[in-house]
Write a protein that binds this DNA or RNA. Sequence first.
DNA 1: AAGGAGCCGTTGCGCC
DNA 2: GGCGCAACGGCTCCTT
Lengths: 80, 80, 80, 80
Amino acid sequence: MSEPLQGDQLKSIVERIERLEEEKKTITDDIKEVYSEAKANGYDVKVLRKVISIRKRDLRERREEEAILDLYLQAVGESA
Amino acid sequence: MSEPLQGDQLKSIVERIERLEEEKKTITDDIKEVYSEAKANGYDVKVLRKVISIRKRDLRERREEEAILDLYLQAVGESA
Amino acid sequence: MSEPLQGDQLKSIVERIERLEEEKKTITDDIKEVYSEAKANGYDVKVLRKVISIRKRDLRERREEEAILDLYLQAVGESA
Amino acid sequence: MSEPLQGDQLKSIVERIERLEEEKKTITDDIKEVYSEAKANGYDVKVLRKVISIRKRDLRERREEEAILDLYLQAVGESA
DNA sequence: AAGGAGCCGTTGCGCC
DNA sequence: GGCGCAACGGCTCCTT
């Protein structure tokens, strides 16, 4: 009798994923909405996107530097 | 005195977007998590992804067909 | 009589692309080779890759900053 | 006095890799260029890509089959 | 309509 | 040999 249960499990997995993807889409749309509002208020969307992306990049870069520092430390025989 | 307000507005916009992007990332991670669990339960992730994508495609096609049907109905003088 | 010519043209396109992809693969293999040599000489490949990627990122970041500067200049009415 | 030499060696490695990656990028761009031209001549790029990928797949499969055949031949005592 | 940017899915690579 | 990660290519949407 495990078959039907497996079927249920699969169904559950698919539904969970689809539900999450819907939520994700909602957020994506929200983001677009914010850009739209910004544009309506006279902001240059292109610049705005650039600002966001650079801030994100900076954050990433900081993490990157930590990561390589860890690697160097390991390379000289220290635990991270 | 509108400058500082604009500054605040810009800051608010950036923060709203960054907050939304964080939420989006959380959901993306949740989705990965579900796939991981599925894999741990013996499901083939690649196939699973295919299933999801086909279902998405089907849904989209169904909506397109409805849209076309609506157009036809309107064309013959019926309200949608 | 344009049909055969078109066939030739298509053939030419496909061959050019396939040739270029072969060259690309050769280079990819060359890169792997360099990493292999480096490893044989005692270098930590993981660290090496990190170094390369950070240098690339830095270069990109510099260009990014120039790009946003240009955007700002445009935003205040100056030509880039 | 091996330190500076090692430094030079590392520098050389990094430069070789970066040089190769530039060449790789050039080729990637060339490929894009060919697709662009094809498009300008009325070809459907998406279909074209499909053609290329199928040919690549076929080539690969043929080689795999030869490899298997070789194994069989060896198994029965023949040299490849 | 064309080009570019961002997102997603696939493939290949290195590690365990 | 399997797993996870990172790079690459392809697709879609948006702007010009």
